[in-house]
């Protein structure tokens, strides 16, 4: 799943803390054995006044122009905690989110993002707040640039660097299949298995 080395977009602040994956996509919205068709269910409990009738809640940020075209989500800490459902990332991505910026993430959610070409960016809480405040002043003028090449976030004339593992960065930039990459070391895995069968016979099934 490739990601553009750099892109600029509208950022939507959703600064609640501990937003769990049930909130990102309620379980009942995962209707098919499928990774697609999920964006309608994104934040369904908050986004709709009546999730059944799909009546939009005008107070919810992603229903408000121009945030309805956001490609970046600014979030409160521990975003994506809770259930491991990768559907949360599939729904965000299908809706149009390409990066989420928060002080911290649920750890399974962060891995799921990387596996799907959505960038989880960790910045400290005050920084996320600052970006959110700028965005709220003028979301169009204060669009945010995500620069994966240089590992930095740019908003106006301010620049913040973020951390990402080199392997993850390359995976995102080059769209490599993690399975194919690992299977290049198949001989190492087979050797481990052979040694392990001798070392831990009790662990083998």
């Amino acid at each position: 799943m490739t990601m553009d080395p750099t892109f600029r977009g509208i950022a939507a602040p959703l600064m609640r803390i501990n937003v769990d994956t049930d909130a990102i996509i309620p379980s009942r919205e995962m209707k098919r054995v499928s990774k697609t068709g999920l964006s309608e269910g994104l934040f369904a409990n908050w986004r709709y006044l009546d999730p059944g009738a799909r009546e939009p809640n005008p107070d919810f940020i992603l229903n408000q122009a121009p945030f309805d075209r956001a490609s970046i989500l600014l979030a409160g800490k521990n975003f994506g905690c809770g259930s491991s459902r990768e559907h949360a990332v599939w729904a965000l991505k299908e809706w149009g989110i390409r990066a989420v910026i928060a002080a911290s993430f649920g750890s399974i959610f962060a891995s799921n993002c990387l596996n799907n070409g959505v960038l989880p960016v960790r910045l400290d809480e005050d920084t996320v707040e600052t970006i959110a405040a700028d965005v709220m002043e003028d979301p169009l003028a204060n669009q945010v640039t995500v620069d994966l090449e240089k590992r930095r976030i740019v908003s106006g004339d301010r620049v913040w660097e973020f951390d990402i593992g080199e392997r993850e960065r390359q995976m995102l930039l080059r769209g490599l299949s993690p399975i194919a990459m690992t299977l290049q070391s198949d001989d190492r895995i087979s050797k481990f298995e052979a040694d392990d069968t001798r070392r831990r016979p009790w662990a083998v099934l």
Partner: peptide
């Protein structure tokens, strides 16, 4: 530990996972 679907695919195909 709990994982997502893509990591589950990786584990099934390789019997390994890359973990920080």
């Amino acid at each position: 530990w709990g994982i997502g679907s893509t990591d589950a695919e990786h584990a099934l195909a390789t019997q390994t996972l890359i973990v920080r």
